[in-house]
Design a protein around this nucleic acid. Sequence first.
DNA 1: ATAATATATTAATCGCCATTCATATATAAA
DNA 2: TTTATATATGAATGGCGATTAATATATTAT
Lengths: 110, 110
Amino acid sequence: MKAVEVKAFFFAIGDYSRFSILSQLMDKDMSVSEIVKATKIEQSNVSHHMQCLLNCGFVMVRKNGKLRVYSLNKGVRPMMNSITGYLKKYKNWITSCDIAKREYIMKVVK
Amino acid sequence: MKAVEVKAFFFAIGDYSRFSILSQLMDKDMSVSEIVKATKIEQSNVSHHMQCLLNCGFVMVRKNGKLRVYSLNKGVRPMMNSITGYLKKYKNWITSCDIAKREYIMKVVK
DNA sequence: ATAATATATTAATCGCCATTCATATATAAA
DNA sequence: TTTATATATGAATGGCGATTAATATATTAT
């Protein structure tokens, strides 16, 4: 497994905004404006994130009139499920850790 | 799933050095100096990473004389396997993406 | 004791990259 | 056409956090 693969993978999925977008897409395909509404991330920012997720193969897009509808790509769902499964099972360890309490992480959490 | 959990999770595992260390620990338990040798990361830096991984519950540690031997914690292995499985299967998408080719990612790859 | 080895801690720096702002493009409706 | 809506793109910047260097602590041996 090459470093560039690992780095690109976590670069794409490791950002909280992008992970949130992928989580939303677990439920249903969504247009940009739907994602904006669901995540409260501003439109321009969402577009940037979608280009990144597209580029790294996490999502695909189809046109529907004025809308661009994004959906999860193959293989993403089970991998996401494994991560969220781990998070749910071990969230106590995660949230009790000092790192998670560091100011620069907490302050971005609404 | 709370934002702080997701952020702490990816903060810990999303760094390439820490992911590499976890990968090494998949094979066998290791002391700090063994990790230093295996990953070529300098000792002080490894210690910092281990505190982070400890803190977030990814690893545990036991004393053995002068050595501190680190091992994977419960639940980490299957989650890591899912990620590496995804990476192996879809590495072509990942490595063909423009993001992965961006200079600031490439240049850290030896 | 002292030395040697192993690991942890503290503090400081600097470059990456998420976000924002401004603008461009695309599609549809009037 | 013109207008409105939806999305994308380009450029700029500010703060996070990985890394390093220096030092401290812990354990074992002599």
